[in-house]
Design a protein around this nucleic acid. Structure first.
Length: 423
RNA sequence: GGAGACGUGCCGGAGCGGUUGAACGGGCCUGACCCGAAAUCAGGUAUACCAGAAAUGGUAUCGGAGGUUCGAAUCCUCCCGUCUCCGCCA
C-alpha cells in the first residue's frame, strides 16, 4: 500500500512511478476520486454523529416525544449514510490496493526483462573437455531425480529428489543456516498455509493473474505460500517493533507452492519449474533509512553462498517493468548452467532479492517506535538463500566425463562423499 | 470432532445499557522535596482518520463482522483466537 498523503500531494510522481511498472496511471485518478468522495461523505456523517450524541444526552434527561422522533429520523439517516460511507471506503481501498509499489529512483527504467541490467559476472566457468550434459540426463542415470513417477503420482511439474540429491538439499539448507545465523538471522520454519488477509497484505493477490498463480484451499479459506516470505512477513503484523531491534532478520525454510499457470510450455521437463519446491529464504524488517543498505547486505549474503559452492553466477538488476507489485527494487542472481542450451550453457535465475520498502508494512501494520517515541512503518526485504535450483547448477557444473557428479568441497562434510556415482 | 471458560489500554484488573478513552493498582515520563538517591506528593502517559498554517477541535476504536436501541465495552447472532477437559493423531 502506498502512503495516501503522498499520493494526494504528488499524484504526478505516483503516476510516473506506476507507469514505469506498466500499471495504468489512470488508477491514480480513480483512487483520488474515491478518496475525495469518501472524505466528503465522512464529514457529513461525522456532523450527524455529533448531533446524535447531543440528542441522546438530552434524552437521558427527558423522554419528550419530539426529541424521540427527531432521534428516530437521525438514526435512519445515519444508517443510510453509514452504508454509503462503507461502500465508498471499499471502493477507495480497492482502488488503492491496485496501485503497485513505486520503484526506487536508481532502478533502471524499462518495459520488461530485456531492459534488466547485468551488474557483474563472477566465478570461473569450467571448461569441459567433453560435451556438457543437461542436469536431468545426468540425474536420471544416477537415480537422483524421478519426474516420470512423480507425474504418475502427482502430475506434471513435480519431482522426486532421491539419494544423494535429497541429502544434498539438506546440506544446502544446513550450509545456509550455519552461515546466516551468526549474521543475526533468526532460524524459523513457518506455516505454509496462510489466511487471505495475510496474502493480501504481502501484495500477492491484487491482480487476477496473481490469484491464478496461487493455490487456494476453499474449504478452509487458506492459501498455500509460494515463498516463505508470504508467511514470515505477516509474523509481526499489527506489532510495534523497537528501533534497536532493527534490522530483525529471519532465515526461513519451507516448501513453496506455485501453480505456474502462466508458464505453459516453459521448462516443461525436469525440476527447474515445479509446483512444489523447498527454499531457504532471508527476510528482514528494517529501519526505513537503512533498507537500501540492507538490500545490498542480503545480496552479499546470497552471493557469498554461491561463492561457497564455487558456482559461476551473475547479478542482474531488475528494471522497473520486471519488478512485480510489492517490490521497489530487485536483484536476481542467475547461476551458470553449462549443460543448458544444447551444451552451450546459459544463465538461469536461482535467487531473487527484493526491497519492498514500506509497501507490505503499511498493509500489515508493522511499525517501529523511534527514540523520540514516534511511530513509523518498517521496510521489509526478502531474498533467496538457497532453493532447489542450485542443485541443478551443482549437477551441471560438477559433472564429469564419466557421468558422475563431484560434491562441492563445502558440502562434503555434510554428506560424507566426494562424488556421486552410478549405483 | 465433542463439552466448557474466556478475549478490555504498556501490564494486571474493574465495569455488564447512558455523562467511560474507559475505575483501581503497577509500569513509564515530567515536576516538587533532597547534596544525590530511595520514599513521598502533584501532573502526564493510546492509535487511526477528518478539518486546520498551527494551537486545537471532531469521529472511530474495549478480539473481528453484523444486529437490537434515541444511545452498546455492556444485550443478541455469526466468525476468529486463547485456555481447560474428552476423543483422535506425527
Amino acid at each position: 500500500m502506498l502512503d495516501i498523503n503522498f499520493i494526494r500531494q504528488n499524484p504526478e510522481k505516483v503516476k510516473e512511478g506506476i507507469a514505469k511498472k506498466n500499471a495504468d496511471p489512470k488508477l491514480v485518478d480513480k483512487f483520488l476520486r474515491w478518496d475525495e468522495e469518501w472524505r466528503a461523505k465522512i464529514s457529513v456523517w461525522e456532523g450527524l454523529k455529533v448531533e446524535q450524541k447531543t440528542l441522546s444526552k438530552e434524552l437521558m434527561k427527558s423522554q419528550a416525544s419530539d426529541l424521540l422522533s427527531r432521534a428516530q429520523i437521525l438514526k435512519k439517516r445515519l444508517a443510510d449514510l453509514e452504508k454509503e460511507k462503507k461502500e465508498l471506503e471499499q471502493k477507495r481501498e480497492e482502488s488503492l490496493s491496485k496501485l503497485p509499489n513505486l520503484p526506487l529512483d536508481d532502478v533502471p527504467v524499462g518495459p520488461d526483462e530485456t531492459a534488466n541490467k547485468i551488474l557483474r559476472e563472477l566465478g570461473q566457468k569450467r571448461k569441459f573437455n567433453f560435451p556438457a550434459k543437461e542436469y536431468l540426463e545426468i540425474a536420471e542415470k544416477l537415480d537422483l531425480i524421478d519426474t516420470k513417477r512423480a507425474a504418475k503420482v502427482s502430475g506434471s511439474r513435480f519431482g522426486y529428489l532421491k539419494n544423494e540429491i535429497a541429502l544434498l538439499e539438506f546440506s544446502l539448507v544446513k550450509l545456509a543456516f550455519d552461515f546466516l545465523i551468526p549474521e543475526n538471522f533468526i532460524p524459523i520454519i513457518p506455516p505454509v498455509l496462510i489466511k487471505e488477509k495475510m496474502m493480501k497484505g504481502m501484495g500477492y493477490i491484487d491482480k487476477t493473474e496473481d490469484k491464478e498463480e496461487t493455490y487456494f484451499l476453499e474449504k478452509d479459506n487458506l492459501y498455500l505460500i509460494a515463498t516463505s516470505e508470504q508467511s514470515v512477513g505477516p509474523l509481526h503484523a499489527d506489532e510495534v517493533l523497537k528501533e534497536e531491534e532493527l534490522p530483525k532478520r529471519y532465515v526461513a525454510f519451507s516448501s513453496c507452492f506455485r501453480r505456474e499457470a502462466g508458464s505453459y510450455g516453459k521448462d516443461t521437463t525436469g525440476i527447474l519449474r515445479v509446483h512444489q519446491f523447498d527454499k531457504v529464504e532471508m527476510f528482514s524488517f528494517c529501519h526505513p533509512d537503512k533498507s537500501k543498505e540492507e538490500h545490498q547486505f542480503l545480496l552479499l549474503m546470497a552471493e557469498k553462498l554461491m561463492q561457497a559452492l564455487q558456482l559461476p553466477y551473475r547479478v542482474v538488476q531488475m528494471c522497473t517493468g520486471d519488478l512485480g507489485g510489492p517490490a521497489a527494487a530487485k536483484y536476481d542472481i542467475e547461476a551458470w548452467l553449462p549443460g543448458q542450451n544444447n551444451g552451450q550453457g546459459e544463465y538461469r535465475e536461482t535467487h531473487s532479492l527484493s526491497n519492498c520498502t514500506d509497501f507490505q508494512a503499511r498493509r500489515l501494520n508493522i511499525r517501529f517506535r523511534d527514540k523520540k517515541g514516534k511511530l513509523g512503518f518498517v521496510h521489509t526485504l526478502n531474498g533467496t538463500a538457497f532453493s532447489q535450483r542450485p542443485l541443478i547448477a551443482i549437477i551441471e557444473n560438477y559433472q564429469t566425463k564419466q557421468g558422475t557428479v563431484k560434491v562441492p568441497d563445502v558440502l562434503k562434510p555434510f554428506i560424507d562423499k566426494n562424488e556421486i556415482k552410478i549405483k
